[in-house]
Design a protein around this nucleic acid. Sequence first.
DNA 1: CACATACTGATTGTATCCAATCTCAAGGAT
DNA 2: ATCCTTGAGATTGGATACAATCAGTATGTG
Lengths: 216, 216
Amino acid sequence: MSETVTAQEGVLRELRVMIASGQLEPGQQVVQDALAASLGVSRVPLREALKVLEGEGQVIYHPHRGYFVANLSVDDLVEVYRIRSILEDEALRVGVPLLTDEDIEYLEDILSDVEAAATSGDVSAVTAANRRFHFALFEASNMPRLVRMIRNQWDATDAYRGVYFAAPANLKAMNAEHRNMIVALRNRDVAESIALQAAHRENSVAVVSQVISKAE
Amino acid sequence: MSETVTAQEGVLRELRVMIASGQLEPGQQVVQDALAASLGVSRVPLREALKVLEGEGQVIYHPHRGYFVANLSVDDLVEVYRIRSILEDEALRVGVPLLTDEDIEYLEDILSDVEAAATSGDVSAVTAANRRFHFALFEASNMPRLVRMIRNQWDATDAYRGVYFAAPANLKAMNAEHRNMIVALRNRDVAESIALQAAHRENSVAVVSQVISKAE
DNA sequence: CACATACTGATTGTATCCAATCTCAAGGAT
DNA sequence: ATCCTTGAGATTGGATACAATCAGTATGTG
C-alpha cells in the first residue's frame, strides 16, 4: 500500500516517474490543466508539487508562462556530476568510518536484491535496488541534508539514464564494482570506497552524456 | 522599484526577510490564514512560497499540521557548515583560477561598499554588501547550481546570524580578512583563498552556534 | 513587402469556498 | 488517578471560479 497522506505527495511521486521515464519529455511545457485532469486532481496540489520540482531543478519556471521539464545541456550535466562528486565524497569520508558490521550486512542484503533483479532481467527493479544500495551507504554519514542534496543530483539526470541498465554488460560490470565496494567497506577503507564510487559515477556520466549530446 | 511579476515572488522575499529578522521565530508555526492576510494575499501564493522555503530547509512541513519555521539544533548547524565548506571550497577551486582582472576590480568595488557601510555603522548594509562580495566571488566558478546550493546554506543560518555584525571588533576583523582575500585572489592562490574563506566561516559558525546553544 | 497593432484563444495566477484533518479540552469508564 | 472516547474549534487540503497575462494570428499601415 502506498501511504499517501496528501494528494500533492502522490502527485509529486507520479511526476517524478513521468519525468524519469520520459513520459514528460525534456523541454516540454507542463500544461497544468491537462496534467491535473489526467492525474485526477485540481491544479492546486499539482502546482505545489511543481514548486518542489522547481527547487530540485527538475523543472524550470517562467512566470506567466508556466513550468517546463528541465532540459540539461552538456555543461549542466558536467556541473551536476561535479557537484555529485564532492557531495558523495564527503558522505563516504564521514560515513565509511562509522559503518557498523550490521550496516555492512544490510548493504550486502540489498546487493543480493540488485543481483537477483539483474538475473531476472527486471531493469526497473535493478535501478531501484541499486539506488537503495548507494543511498543506504550515503546515509551512514548521518547527514540527512547532504543525502538529500545527493538525491537531487541523482534525480536531475534520471530522465536521461533510462537506458543504462538495459545492457547486460553494464549490469555485470556494476555487480563487480559493488562487490569490490563491499570489500573496501569491510576494511573501512575511505580512499578506496571513494575511488570505487567515482568509477561507478563515471559509467553513469558516460551514458547520460551520450544521451544528451545526441539530443542536442 | 521592486520588480515583482507575481505575488508569490514578493511573498517569498518577504518571508525570507521575516525569517532572517526573527519576526518569524524558529519553531513557530506559520498560520497561513493570518500570515496571508497580513501580507495582503490569499493563501494560495503563500503556500507556494512556503513550498519553496521547505525545499531550502527554511521551514519544515508536517502534512495536515502545517509549516513551522526551521529550528536548527547544534547538530544541524554542524552539518550545514560542513556542507557549506565543501561547496565553497569547490567554488573557489574552480572559480579563482578563472578570475579576470576586471572581476577582481569589481570585487574591490564591493569591498569599498562593505567598508563604507561599516564606517557608517549600518549593520544591514554591511550584511548585504558582505553577501554580495562573497557571492560575486563564488559566481566566478560559473557553476550556478553550486552557487544556489551555497546560498541555501547561508540562508539556513540567517535567522541566527543577526547579531554578528553588530560588534565593531567583528567588523574590523572582517575587513582585514577581506583585504587578505583580495591579495590571495590577485595571486590566483587557490589554497590561500580557500583557507581565508574557511577562517571567515569559522567566525560565523562561532557566533551562530552560541545563539543556538543559548536557545536550546 | 515589412512592420506595428489589435484581437482571440489558451494558459497561468489568485481568491474564495467547502471538505478533511488535527489539536485539545471535557467527560466518562476502569 | 489514568486512560480512553467524544466533541468543538481551529487549521490545513483541495476544487472551483474568475482575473491577468501571454502567444500567435489576423488586420491595418507605411
